[in-house]
Computed example of a mutant assay.
Amino acid sequence: MAGSIQDRGNGSFLLSYHIGYDAKGKRIRKTRTVKAKNPTEAKKKLAAFVTEIETGQYVAPSHTRFSDYVKVWRKHAIKKLSPNTLETYTYSLDGRILPALGHYKMEEITHVHINGFLESLEGVLSSSTIKKQYNILSSIFKLAKKNEIINHNPMEKSEKPSVTYKEGDVYNSSELNELYQLLNKEENKQMVLLIKMALKTGMRKGELLALQWDDVDFNTNTVHIRHSLSYTKDNGYFLKEPKTKGSFRKVAPPKKLMDELKKHIFKKKTDRMEAAELWEGGKYYFVFSSEMGKPYNLDVPNRWWTRFHERVNKELKKNDKPPLKKIRFHDLRHTAATDLINKGANIHSISKRLGHANITTTMNIYGHYLEEADQKIADLLNEDYI
């Protein structure tokens, strides 16, 4: 068998294989250092090494560091990823991944390094955020394997993180009634309408802020969800496609809410005419925006929602009444879903209304609420049982 083995001690062996000569008559040699228990095992690894070379599967060791290859990957990613996703990935790379793995050479990184890095994030980041770190690394090493920078992709043996959906807090029917009464007393009717839309349609915040006049069809009493508002430092505000293919959808809000929406859009159109050349919305006509048509900052609904709670709870405390439960803005979407469950809507309709990619996602998030609703039905049936 062609090739040779050199014992370097401590279980380390240098494998060598000569594949011919270059133009100057110099012998071309391929080498690899391996760990083996004894010379017999080293010979087996040499045989595999030779086969690898002769079948064209051999990739010469790269001295490229992970941090340097990330720069190559970024140029590739710019063409493949949305600006918002790329900015999110860059934040994760610069903040966590590169500090942990950037100093290694590409061929040095194994699944042990990957698993150790991901495990270090447990208890620090949410399961979904850890999954994003995994996805970023998978994308980088997949490209490296394709470009023959590495021979083996360490992600293939790495443990893929599972996502645990965090249960958000929601309002029950009596809390919802109290909330609507408090909202109707507010002066900022635009923000009140945005909150009601979140509660009655289950739309995501980005989808609400991307909603335009033409997306609302008063003849069919439907709202078309076609975009999501996004923002990056490099691109500013822009509209992107919704989160999933199923997110392209139509929802039918209650008739009374559509009446409020109709009055609101009429006011927006009046504002547009009065603004004339001062209009800041450009070619867009957002349903929820500044008086001059400029899209809302993505954090505006969160800030208003926080201040609303502070304001009403201060007043409730003054009148010796219990406070309104504080939930996150995103939990308004969860409230919309659980309210539909309590009203007897089937899970397929709820999944479609929320724009989930599939019904499995809906079941993962709201399965226990469905079980609770089913138990209530069982209790009702029990009343008639003889």
Rank of each mutant, 00 (worst) to 15 (best):
Y21N: 11
I386C: 05
R328C: 10
E178P: 02
K80V: 13
N364H: 12
H111S: 13
I136K: 03
G282C: 07
A252Y: 11
G95Y: 07
I377V: 15
A77P: 00
E186F: 05
L211K: 00
S174H: 10
K283N: 14
A198N: 01
Y21P: 09
I365S: 05
A77S: 12
I386G: 11
D7C: 06
N313F: 01
L239R: 02
E291Q: 13
E187L: 10
P99S: 10
L183G: 01
E159S: 14
L46F: 02
E107D: 15
L121C: 11
K205H: 04
V251P: 03
L101A: 06
K314R: 13
F117Y: 15
F266I: 12
K105R: 15
M203P: 04
L257W: 01
A77R: 01
L354D: 03
M191K: 05
T338L: 03
L15D: 08
K146R: 15
K352H: 10
P242K: 01
K146P: 02
A100M: 01
E383W: 00
T244Q: 05
S162W: 02
R333H: 06
L194P: 06
T40Y: 07
M1P: 09
K317P: 04
N153A: 08
E87M: 08
Y89A: 03
I350W: 09
G355M: 01
L93V: 06
G123F: 01
S174E: 15
D339Q: 14
K255G: 03
E383M: 04
E280S: 11
W304A: 08
N38R: 04
F218P: 00
D379I: 10
I341M: 07
D169C: 02
H152G: 00
I19H: 00
M155I: 07
N346C: 03
P161I: 08
A357Y: 09
K325F: 07
D217F: 07
Q181T: 14
N235Y: 11
N188M: 05
Y21G: 08
V34F: 06
D215S: 07
K352S: 10
